[in-house]
Write a protein that binds this DNA or RNA. Structure first.
Lengths: 343, 343
DNA sequence: GTGAAAGCGCTAACAG
DNA sequence: CTGTTAGCGCTTTCAC
């Protein structure tokens, strides 16, 4: 464990602990001469300041947290999360800030996790999977734990927010399907209490004018399959389905095929979030890539600023791009897809 | 921040700090009566012990770390990682242990990260992406940071190890391809200094008897494509390619198709790690599912034991299952795949 | 420009 | 069974 302490370094350099501390932090003027001696001593002894001691003294953990209340299965199959984390890390690593990841089974554990985090473990948190009226927001405000909300949170809040415009790609896809002659266009959303699911569903309703063909899934393959079965059993079944993620879209596609439908001739399908394999499916899946890494970078950057005392602000990271591919191609022929086609 | 301290709780309960501390830790006998009072006071004040203070006093961080030296792009496209982390978390959350995730750009940063971690930030580490002779192993031994190696590390070490048998599925796939009449079977490995890449490549060589058709990729789609191009340009090109992950396999498949080859009629293809979408590709991709979550759980469990003082041990988590699907089906006809076919 | 000393909030001897 | 007293290793006033 941590054998050598700041006292050892001080002794080695022939100065006091305070001087060592300041030589490294630059918090007060130090003569070049002694700074050199201190650095040399630290180097020689391979000393690294103890994070726990430093955290206790400065009331700063040099760590930020992400708490996930999701089911492990969802985490494992989600294309957003790893890329988002990679983006977050690319910013955090610049300042040697650690990322604490915590997966919790339920509300009680989640509250407790945030309490613990706010008491010396983390300096701030990134909130994902926001719900329309999310208890975590007032809760963290009360804990005075700085946070950045990732998603288009609509309630008043003192926290910073990273938003994206999910409505635009939905409108674009619906327009595209309409242009291809589709009139019965369904939407399989994620859980509607999530703000991003809600935003997509609302855009869909606004665009098609009715919620008749809106069905709520839960982002899992199983729900994609079940809801698709339900939709296809309708007397006047949809000819196109817009899913709120790729996992549900693929599951739906498989089910439709098992029923003898040919995609996209008999049923057009689009996903969301653009899993890295979706372009390679056959038919290639139309989807919306949202550059999760960019959102991770933005969120981490803003959180760092807020922890340092900056005023909260909302940033719109608009990186949604619709990739129209074969699964929504106008005809079933060998014609490759349309407009902005991507490999 | 953390306003209320153990002193407040002690005052509220009419006892001393020591009593409060022990009432919660159970480290010494406490009368039920005072324990009740303490718990009530803690509850009333919403007190949570400060992690930094506790860490400093106990020399225990209640956190374990995973340091990744990978390129963010690889993280974002890797199906192993998120599932592994989900497994790790499911064990850690039982004991309110935090997971610290750190992505580092290079060797220097990585050394520094481990030093900092071992000095008050974490009690142990999980090592992924092991290399044949990995500098991190002796380095962490010197730092006295408990660790668990995830992968079949062959060098002598005092650390615990989670192993899998990657050779068996490779043998099984090669045998399957042989039985289907393939004689020119290639292998696109991951970087060969990784132990798991090496193990797969060695099994392949042992099975086919030569390294003539072995090519080294780096797990990215780009490398999968490039290496496939090289293999298909051979005068006596392979009729089957076994890739070391699904991303490279898909990229290879796309390239082969672009050259007019029909899969699996002209070229059989298998992947590794079984991305959650691979079964839905068309042709569905033969791959090896390795239950990363189970390995994550095992690794976390063993690390916890080691931190608590248990002797290191090696555990074999054997959960590799080959899913033979259409991409290696014996013929190109509409015949769906073979033996253990999976949806 | 540097040193001395007082905590940060908790745990762990040591007494009683 | 409970109270007292030192620290854990660092930062940060306050003096000089």
């Amino acid at each position: 464990m941590s054998r050598t302490t700041i006292a050892d370094v001080a002794r080695e350099a022939g100065v006091t602990k305070a001087t060592v501390s300041h030589a490294l932090s630059g918090n007060r003027p130090i003569s070049d001469d002694t700074r050199m001696k201190v650095l040399a001593a630290a180097e020689k002894l391979n000393w690294v300041p103890s994070q726990s001691a430093r955290a206790l003294a400065t009331r700063r953990a040099n760590a930020v947290a992400v708490v996930l209340a999701r089911d492990p299965e969802v985490i494992a199959n989600d294309s957003f999360f790893p890329a988002f984390i990679a983006g977050v890390e690319s910013v955090l690593s610049e300042t040697e800030t650690a990322l604490i990841l915590q997966v919790v089974p339920g509300r009680d554990a989640e509250e407790r996790a945030y309490r613990t985090l706010s008491h010396g473990r983390a300096d701030g948190a990134l909130l994902l999977d926001l719900r329309g009226d999310d208890w975590r927001v007032p809760f963290l405000e009360e804990l005075a734990l700085p946070a950045v909300l990732v998603g288009a949170y609509e309630q008043p809040t003192s926290f910073s927010c990273i938003r994206t415009d999910d409505a635009a790609p939905v409108r674009e896809i619906v327009a595209h399907l309409r242009a291809a002659g589709h009139e019965r266009i369904a939407h399989v959303s994620g859980p509607l209490d999530y703000v991003h699911s809600r935003a997509r569903a609302d855009a869909y309703i606004a665009e098609v004018g009715t919620a008749e063909l809106l069905r709520e899934g839960d982002f899992t393959a199983a729900s994609g399959r079940d809801v698709t079965e339900e939709l296809l059993a309708l007397p006047d079944r949809p000819t196109a389905i817009l899913y709120s993620n790729d996992t549900m879209a693929i599951a739906g596609l498989s089910y439709a095929r098992s029923q003898g439908l040919v995609i996209p001739r008999d049923l057009a399908i689009s996903g969301f979030d653009d899993d890295h394999l979706s372009a390679h499916l056959s038919p290639a899946l139309t989807s919306v890539s949202s550059d999760p890494a960019a959102r991770g970078r933005a969120a981490a950057r803003i959180l760092r600023e807020v922890i340092l005392g900056a005023r909260p602000r909302t940033e719109i990271v608009d990186c949604n791009v619709v990739h129209f591919r074969e699964s929504t191609a106008p005809s079933a022929s060998a014609t490759p897809a349309v407009s902005r086609r991507t490999p």
